[in-house]
């Protein structure tokens, strides 16, 4: 070692000093929040390519292929209509029950699939994460984007159902766009939070279906939440009004249907919708970013 020290000026440095001298950085260090957002933006092409690829892959083994993108919401609507509209005849209280039901169902399915996909965003892509370096938030965001495309297909189906069910085509339909965008931001935030939680708590995947089902019953998908007020004390009923999914579902119903039985005023719904999107989007993103360096561990 002594002979080397003469020839090599770096030999006297400790490893840490050597690294500092040549400007090496600690492996796997988390980038700052602003840098992270910039990185994420530069990976936007990857995000959209990945989202499209996932969508294509999900139908690639089915013979009908992407026809299922439209068939799935149609079949779902048919099943629920059969049970609740025909067999149980819940429709008595609500005009245009099938339009009412399908709107709730499709909006809810959007969040539901994003949440269940988000839980596995990290654990299901460990191979990709361990092989390639990219901002990991790309994965939950791509999942949201995939499901957003599904939602678009569902909305086309829904528009058909609503028109057939006797609702007029009005300018208010344009409100669909901001409502869907707000819900997407909300979903992306939730997906990111669930992705980090799911990567740590492996049991979460088993629990999520039950949470989602409870959430569905609390969101007035199959019936009006006005029913709750008959049985619940005032404060709890008020809490139900804050439910983000109820807010997004009601925004959509209001946009599509003339006489939709909504429980809250439009201003309140829009304010809540924007608020939830901001809260979930920002907090979810920061929470996910803080765990950035742990995701390859598995």
């Amino acid at each position: 070692m002594a002979t080397t020290a003469v020839a090599n000026p770096d030999a006297e440095l400790t490893q840490a000093e050597l690294a500092a001298r040549y400007g090496l950085s600690v492996a796997g260090e988390r980038p700052g929040l602003v840098t992270y957002i910039k990185q994420l933006w530069s990976y936007r092409h990857f995000i959209s390519a990945y989202a499209n690829a996932k969508l294509a892959a999900s139908f690639s083994t089915a013979r009908l292929g992407r026809v299922w993108q439209v068939l799935t919401p149609l079949t779902n609507a048919a099943v629920y209509y059969l049970i609740f509209g025909v067999v149980l005849n819940t429709s008595g209280e609500i005009d245009n029950f099938i339009a009412y039901l399908c709107t709730g169902l499709f909006v809810f399915t959007f969040t539901q699939s994003v949440v269940s996909g988000g839980v596995q965003a990290i654990t299901g892509n460990l191979g990709l994460i361990r092989a390639l370096h990219f901002p990991r938030a790309a994965l939950p965001i791509a999942i949201t984007l995939t499901q957003f495309q599904q939602l678009l297909a569902s909305i086309v189906v829904l528009a058909g159902i609503v028109l057939v069910d006797g609702e007029p085509l009005t300018l208010e339909w344009l409100l669909l766009v901001p409502a869907m965008l707000l819900q997407s931001v909300f979903n992306a935030g939730v997906a990111m939070a669930m992705a980090r939680l799911g990567s740590k708590v492996t049991d979460l995947k088993q629990v999520v279906p039950f949470v989602m089902r409870t959430w569905m019953y609390g969101s007035g998908v199959l019936y009006s939440v006005a029913n709750f007020e008959k049985h619940l004390p005032g404060t709890v009923a008020w809490l139900v009004q804050l439910n983000p999914l109820l807010v997004y579902i009601e925004l959509m119903r209001h946009a599509l249907m003339e006489t939709a039985p909504v429980t809250a005023s439009q201003t309140q719904s829009w304010l809540l919708g924007i608020g939830w999107a901001l809260v979930a989007g920002v907090l979810g993103f920061i929470y996910f970013w803080r765990g950035e360096k742990e995701y390859g561990r598995g």
Binding site: A16, A19, Y22, V26, A27, G28, E294, G296
Partner: peptide, 15 residues
């Protein structure tokens, strides 16, 4: 070295 597993002691520096 790839930064996927954190070192519990010591450090890895990379370019």
């Amino acid at each position: 070295i790839a930064g996927l597993l954190p070192a519990s002691r010591g450090a890895v520096y990379t370019q």
